[in-house]
């Protein structure tokens, strides 16, 4: 399943963003941020405690099942009174959740998390970026491993000179995408695919901001 991978913002940054707010309602999410332990029930409660300790009035808190889902509207309606009493919503979900909630409530929202990447859980407690939604997929030639996402430099013609022992030059915990692609293509007897000189990438998949209207297709 696609997961939105987040990490908590520094307390200092959250405190600064909340500096003009005395009454706060906190919202978490039961899906990705619960898995990454950044915005589930325990983290929301800990945040409530920390902010109360700093003299903030917490008007209530809520962990919605799936913050980015449209059903969030119903969940928020149930807490209408407590939300009304708050001047700011501190949202401990990914940016999808923050924006879904911000669209529905006339309140300032403060994100408590930074959304790092779309990925999946590749081992217990380990999350890996899988796709950057570039719009011009090339993994048909790389054995299904994406170098645009998995290579630090997004290179499409093979490794840079910084790779060492199958690891990336920036972080030994990260695999070199091109070592993985090489190994995969060798297993498949398809190294010819890696030998093909790839032209410059097409960055015009869908110009930002992305929009798709099915009836126009």
């Amino acid at each position: 399943m696609i997961r939105s991978i987040t990490q908590p913002k520094a307390e200092k940054e959250i405190d600064l963003l909340l500096s003009g707010s005395g009454r706060i309602f906190i919202i978490g999410c039961g899906t990705c941020v619960t898995l990454t332990r950044t915005g589930g029930e325990p983290e929301v409660r800990a945040m409530q405690e920390r902010l109360s300790g700093k003299g903030k009035l917490i008007t209530g808190h809520l962990v919605v099942p799936v913050a980015c889902d449209n059903l969030t509207t119903d969940a928020l309606a149930e807490y209408g009174h407590q939300i009304d009493q708050a001047d700011t919503l501190l949202i401990m979900t990914c940016a999808f959740g923050v924006q879904t909630i911000a669209r529905q409530l006339k309140k300032m929202v403060v994100p408590a998390l930074d959304t790092l990447f779309m990925g999946k859980e590749t081992a217990a407690g380990e999350f890996t970026e899988i796709c950057t939604q570039c719009g011009t997929c090339i993994i048909g030639e790389t054995g299904g491993i994406c170098p645009v996402t998995s290579c630090h430099k997004g290179l499409v013609n093979g490794p840079c000179g910084g790779t060492d022992s199958g690891k990336c030059e920036i972080d030994k915990r990260k695999d070199c995408a091109w070592t993985m692609i090489y190994n995969r293509l060798m297993d498949l007897g398809r190294l010819d695919s890696m030998r093909r000189l790839q032209p410059p990438r097409n960055h015009l998949g869908e110009p930002t901001p992305g929009k798709m209207i099915l009836s126009e297709k």
Partner: peptide, 21 residues
């Protein structure tokens, strides 16, 4: 450029050939 002491070497050599091409 090429890194002849890289490990693994083969992916570097594929890139080396692409540079010549």
């Amino acid at each position: 450029i090429v890194t002849p002491e890289a490990d693994p070497l083969e992916p570097q050599l594929i890139k080396f050939e692409k540079k010549i091409e």
